[in-house]
């Protein structure tokens, strides 16, 4: 499975994203919202500014700095290990032909349920890497684009714990979609993602944070576990109730309950989270399960699809999977591509 290519879905991206474009709000009832806007003279719930989360923050005049103490906890890079020591997870590794052929024979003979098997490489490897990369920073390395959003725009401290908070926020975003898969598979995807998270944290604590004692690492892992449970619960509540509750959950977890918070930053991160969830809600089970999702970068705008665009998107996905023939045993899936 290692030479499996992860292709982002160009259709979804081109339909949903319009980076720094001028305001064209796709609303199901543009007319109605316009009239209401005219009547009230103020904003309505059906239109939002055309600023990406990052732009929203840039416009803010409040320069809220992190808590008033200096956090010095640099994360030093020892070696370039992005994910694991295993060669199978390296992007440069190509599985020899005979090995993949033998794999296909085994899958075929034992009639393996590939939707179950796929959870490992997709959720445990690819999706975990996506979540990890969002906030991954090293003291001696330049920040990536998404890191700039979190550490520079949002002024979050550059620490290991903060990286963990950013990672679990993204994992939770994926959890919400995994719950919508058939229970057996969704649960497995979630399990693989969490398993890999803690395996990787353990490795990072030993190798990168240079913790020598296994007992201390265990303590950290327990602490991170409680944080994960707390955060998932709080985000779930916020996601289901309203934006204000989601914002306070983000304030408590991601911002560590910082007192001098800039509310514009809170608004931006709520927008960021909700837009990711929207993109996920438009993906079919099979698209998501095969790893065709990427987080929308914070400097891009997600626009709502019109019913026509949505229909077009669905049709193209259906066409893509219906025309697929001569699939290898490892490529089979029973998950729906129409939902």
């Amino acid at each position: 499975m290692s030479n499996f290519k992860w292709v982002s879905t160009p259709i979804i991206r081109s339909c949903l994203l319009r980076a720094n474009s001028k305001a064209i709000i796709h609303s199901t009832n543009v007319g109605a919202s316009l009239t209401r806007a005219g009547l009230n003279g103020i904003r309505t719930n059906h239109s939002i500014s055309n600023d990406s989360p990052e732009n929203l923050i840039k416009k803010s005049h409040t320069k809220a700095m992190p808590a008033d103490y200096e956090i010095v906890a640099p994360v030093k890079k020892i070696k370039i290990i992005k994910l694991a020591h295993s060669k199978y997870e390296s992007s440069k590794y190509h599985l020899p032909k005979w090995k993949s052929a033998m794999g296909e024979v085994v899958i075929n003979m034992l009639k393996l349920d590939m939707d179950r098997v796929r959870a490992g490489p997709v959720a445990g490897s690819y999706y975990y890497m996506l979540c990890k990369e969002q906030g991954l920073q090293y003291d001696d390395e330049e920040l990536s684009e998404s890191c700039k959003f979190f550490y520079e725009s949002l002024n979050l401290p550059r620490t290991f714990s903060q990286w963990f908070q950013i990672t679990i926020l993204h994992e939770w975003i994926l959890f919400t979609r995994m719950r919508a898969m058939p229970f057996k598979y969704g649960k497995n995807y979630q399990q693989k993602l969490v398993d890999r998270t803690f395996l990787d944290i353990e490795r990072r604590l030993f190798e990168e944070m240079n913790v020598k004692s296994g007992r201390i690492v265990d303590q950290y892992l327990k602490d991170f576990n409680t944080q994960l449970r707390g955060a998932v619960f709080a985000y779930d509540e916020g996601f289901f109730t309203d934006d204000a509750t989601l914002a306070t959950a983000l304030w408590r977890n991601l911002f560590g309950g910082r007192k001098n918070i800039d509310m514009v930053q809170l608004e931006a991160i709520v927008r960021y989270v909700r837009s990711q969830l929207y993109v996920l809600s438009k993906m079919s089970d099979r698209e998501f399960a095969k790893g065709n999702f990427k987080f929308v970068p914070p400097n891009e705008v997600v626009e709502r699809l019109t019913p026509e665009q949505e229909n077009k998107l669905k049709q193209s996905i259906i066409k893509k999977y219906e025309t697929e023939t001569d699939l290898l045993p490892s490529e089979h899936s029973k998950l729906s591509y129409t939902n």
Partner: peptide, 26 residues
Amino acid sequence: ALQNLLSNKYKNYYEVGDKLYKPSGN
């Protein structure tokens, strides 16, 4: 910014529907 949050602007705009609010797996 706070009023935007209170008015549920983003929850309404980025409506995810029952697909995520009543996830079929659970």
